[in-house]
């Protein structure tokens, strides 16, 4: 069974938990393993936190967009903001790199996303925003089963 969902929510930190719950609910009917669920919740948390902290720099009146697509056992997650954008994507993806050490950011967000997902693609335009696209093959989902 293929499925698709798209929605937007305000850039407030309370919505990090909301976004995690949404991805968990979206994949629930595919009987994911606990490990897969944790991975998906973690990467969504990282991407949404990035949008709020870096994209919008804490402004709470902006929109974060999230799209979930399940197609042939592969879950694709897109998290988009219309914020500041990143000047150097390669640098941002390095482990322990952070532009906000004063906020005690660990700089591990992208490393975690890359570790837990099969693919992570980042595109960013200065002053227009950042889009993170990630996908993961869910082993528990059997083709034709749903």
């Amino acid at each position: 069974m293929n499925n698709h969902a798209a929605f937007k929510f305000r850039s407030i930190s309370d919505n990090e938990a909301f976004a995690r719950m949404v991805v968990a609910s979206f994949v629930a009917s595919y009987d994911p393993t606990i490990g897969e669920l944790t991975d998906l919740k973690t990467v969504v948390s990282e991407a949404v936190t990035n949008a709020i902290i870096h994209g919008y720099e804490g402004r709470d009146d902006q929109w974060v967009y999230m799209t979930l697509t399940m197609e042939d056992n592969v879950l694709s997650i897109e998290v988009k903001d219309e914020g500041l954008g990143m000047s150097n994507i390669e640098e941002a993806r390095q482990p322990l790199f952070t532009t906000k050490p004063e906020m005690e950011r660990s700089g591990m967000g992208f490393t975690i996303m890359e570790h837990f997902m099969d693919s992570v693609d980042v595109s960013s335009v200065h002053s227009q925003g950042t889009t993170i696209r990630m996908s993961k093959h869910l082993a528990s989902v059997q083709a034709g089963c749903h």
Binding site: E46, E104, S106
Partner: peptide, 13 residues
């Protein structure tokens, strides 16, 4: 039940 890189940052701090 759950922790992400923000939690790592807090602990490291």
């Amino acid at each position: 039940d759950f922790m992400d890189s923000s939690g790592l940052g807090l602990m490291l701090g």
